[in-house]
């Protein structure tokens, strides 16, 4: 396997809230291979957005990267000076923030906003910038004569396409998209995902897709990183992590999701309880209070077990995962966790 494009090692990000520290990301490690789409999934507050923002060091004022490495192109993004980081942003790593479609400036035309990026950050001249804008619009499937329109003249889906065009403007190696389709209707969502996948394949760019929706991940991603309560529960290829999950949390998520493909609408199984408060997380495995397979040993910090090459799992019982999967498929298993 070739060298990954991005390698995150034991990343830690903390927020200061009053006098307390909340460890929103508490030792996350994963790789992003070149030319892949990776889904970063988890529930609200699991730290997925914080990870995504930490990768470009665009984090809140009261947050700080407190440890770990972010290796990108031989550089550690966690440590390089702000000036170098700023040079990387947009040119090498583009970030599409959550609800990017609403973050376009309403008083300027879309062309003006593209032009600003292309000329100021990309160093193109006026003519090159115009040509590139047209090319970008064509790429994301919008008629080039709509460049002179204002953001409010576009529908939500179209604005999301514009946001993608903006991200692609300087040919980045990595695009990080935070919930790019969450606010969109299913049909538009599907069309945007198809577009994103097509562009990713054509341009060979790597994409990190941050989302809470494992259906979206299943549809478009090659790999997935599943986060729970500030830690990576497991990561691996789509097949490994979704079809045959090895972490009980991922198994539970599969059960909780309604599926249109199944024969009939069966019974959905919730995971009892709610994610822990990160200001005072449970000792040991953070999923322990909700896990039906928890043992006494789970009160201690779980190891990262490589159940298959490139498929690390953060669980004491990772080696028993085949047996647990069978158990997990039964609704009763989740009714009364230990």
């Amino acid at each position: 396997m070739s060298e990954p494009l991005l390698s995150v090692r034991d990343l830690r990000v903390s927020y200061q809230v009053g006098r307390n520290f909340v460890h929103a990301v508490d030792g996350a490690s994963f790789d992003i291979p070149r030319g892949s789409i990776t889904g970063l999934v988890g529930e609200s507050g699991c730290g997925k957005t914080t990870v995504a923002r930490a990768l470009t060091r665009v984090i809140a004022e009261n947050a700080a990267i407190t440890g770990g490495q972010i290796l990108f192109d031989g550089k550690d993004l966690a440590k390089i000076p702000e000036k170098d980081m700023n040079a990387l942003r947009w040119r090498d790593i583009a970030f599409i923030p959550q609800s990017a479609m609403n973050s376009l400036d309403p008083v300027y035309t879309v062309e003006y906003q593209l032009d600003e990026v292309l000329r100021r950050r990309g160093g193109l001249n006026r003519k090159q910038s115009r040509a590139r804008s047209e090319e970008l619009f064509e790429m994301v499937g919008i008629d080039a004569n709509r460049l002179t329109d204002y953001p409010h003249q576009f529908s939500g889906g179209m604005r999301q396409r514009v946001a993608i065009a903006l991200a692609l403007a300087l040919d980045p190696k990595l695009i990080i998209a935070d919930e790019p389709v969450t606010a969109l209707d299913v049909i538009v969502q599907r069309q945007i995902l198809d577009q994103l996948k097509e562009l990713q394949t054509r341009l060979g760019v790597s994409v990190i897709l941050v989302t809470h929706d494992i259906s979206v991940v299943a549809y478009i991603c090659d790999r997935t990183v599943v986060m729970y309560a500030g830690k990576v529960a497991e990561s691996g290829t789509m097949q490994a992590a979704l079809t045959a999950p090895s972490h009980p949390y991922t198994m539970g998520l599969r059960n909780a999701f309604p599926d249109l493909q199944g024969a009939a609408a069966g019974i959905l199984t919730p995971i009892e309880g709610a994610p822990p408060n990160l200001a005072s997380p449970p000792a040991g495995c953070r999923f322990k209070p909700r896990c039906p397979f928890a043992l006494d040993i789970c009160g201690t910090e779980p190891p990262i077990v490589e159940v298959a090459p490139g498929h690390p799992v953060l669980c004491h019982r990772a080696n028993e995962s085949a047996a647990l999967r069978i158990e997990a498929a039964r609704t009763e298993t989740w009714m009364a966790p230990a």
Binding site: G141, S155, G156, G157, M158, V186, I187, V188, Q189, R190, Q191, L193, D194, K197, D213, I214, S215, V216, A218, Y219, M238, Q239, L242, T243, R254, F257, D259, L260, Q261
Partner: peptide, 22 residues
């Protein structure tokens, strides 16, 4: 119906039978 994503990596990626726009 075709647009509803399912939590399964093996699924159809056929283009939707619908025009673009909103």
């Amino acid at each position: 119906v075709a647009a509803v994503p399912v939590p399964n990596p093996d699924q159809s990626h056929e283009p939707l039978p619908i025009g673009r726009g909103a």
